[in-house]
Simulated scan of single mutants.
Amino acid sequence: MSNSTAQPDPKHADPTAERADRMKRLSIIPIWNTSGVAEEMGYKARGHVWRWRDLHAEFEEAVKTSLAGPGTERRILLFENPGMPRSAAATPTLNGALQMILPGEVAPAHRHTYSALRFILSGSGAFTVVDGTRADMHELDLLLTPGGCWHSHAHNGGTEPMVWFDALDTPFVSYMRADCFEMHPSKSLEPYTNTVGSYEDIGALGMLQGRTRAQPPASPQLVYKWAAAEAMIQAGLDRDDDDPYEGVVYEYVNPITGGHVMPTIACHVNGFRKGFHSKARRRTSSSLCVVAKGSGATIIDGVKHEWSERDVIAEPAWSWCEYIAYEKSILFRTSDQPILEPFGLARQEDHPNGRQ
């Protein structure tokens, strides 16, 4: 009896497998149908909710077990879209994350080509420094860190941790091979000579400082106060100024140009009155939404995703989205819309039946 392993009969080899191996060697992907390259490669971003209660529990556990205890410089939970495995990205163009800093800690100064923002979720007593200007962190304020600016964070007041939502255009910048990262020579907190007070009111009352005439690519207003945003949403609700697709919506803008706050990232707030149920709309831009107030659900391509305060929702590009508010609710929305506009790629479409 022979002990040799039987070899496959070449006459009966699987032609599909042979073709797949051949095309892999040739570094090509066959597209014989209309399913699309993104779906074939497994990079179809999905609607998803990262829940505050789960993420905050992970922070607490990590600190308690010293995995991310005192002295840890980078205490960050990076979002990965479940439809984009091994991407370390929330959408194809945006990173989303939660970051925590404990009392007495300093996150060393650095700069990079990525544009970033912080939307403060909880805590008090911390501040950030951006190119020599200090900005204190307060709950639900929006803080900008334009690409190329030195920045660092410190927590020198209060006894509770500070947690904020980060959004960055890292996937887009990396795809363009424009990455650049540099640590500050101080290896610690960036020195600062002024505070953000001079910027908070840079566009107040429709007026600008006489010397402010440059056309900066990013907004020079580093802090956008939550109280002002919430007041505008409430005024819109009081006027019954609801859009059937968006609720009451306002954009954070560059006060010099009236454009988006950063060249690659736009920021909006959407307000919904209790019981609001929007019509469905889809856009070529992708978004990450933070639930600032209230509770409700977003229906994304027919799947209902419920959310509550401090949760983060991924809305993939060209996905039908409609909103339901269980109570008065406000979403903070960041998107990649500015990347698309210069190329005529920004598009939206309303659902022909109103809802999915």
Score class of each variant (00 low, 15 high):
Cys180Gly: 06
Trp50Cys: 00
His153Val: 11
Met176His: 03
Asp243Gly: 04
Glu61Trp: 13
Trp318Arg: 14
Thr170Gly: 03
Arg111Gly: 02
Ile31Met: 13
Pro352Gln: 12
Ala116Cys: 07
Glu73Trp: 11
Leu140Arg: 15
Met207Trp: 06
Leu142Asp: 03
Lys44Ala: 13
Leu168Tyr: 11
Met162Glu: 05
Cys321Ser: 03
Ile300Gln: 01
Ser335Gly: 07
Ser219Thr: 13
Glu39Lys: 15
Val129Asp: 01
Ser124Arg: 14
Ser35Phe: 10
Glu246His: 13
Gly71Ala: 09
Gly104Thr: 05
Leu94Lys: 12
Leu102Glu: 02
Ser198Val: 12
Ser335Arg: 04
Glu309Phe: 00
Asp131Ala: 10
Thr170Tyr: 13
Asp9Gly: 06
Gly206Tyr: 04
Gly132Ser: 07
Ile265Gln: 02
Gly71Glu: 07
Glu230Thr: 07
Ser198Gln: 13
Asp241Val: 00
Phe276Met: 14
Pro146Trp: 13
Leu26Gln: 05
Lys24Met: 11
Asp136His: 11
Ile256Cys: 08
Ile330Leu: 06
Ala89Arg: 11
Ser319Arg: 01
Gly148Met: 11
His48Val: 02
Pro85Glu: 00
Ser308Gln: 11
Ser319Lys: 01
Ser278Val: 10
Lys24Ala: 14
His351Ala: 12
Asn254Asp: 11
Thr298Ile: 09
Thr334Ala: 14
Trp320Asn: 03
Thr34Glu: 10
Val249Leu: 13
Lys225Asp: 05
Pro185Asp: 12
Gly197Ile: 13
Glu182Thr: 12
Phe272Asp: 02
Asp240Tyr: 00
Pro10Ile: 13
Arg22Lys: 08
His112Gln: 04
Pro85Val: 00
Pro255Val: 12
Arg273Gln: 10
Lys274Ser: 14
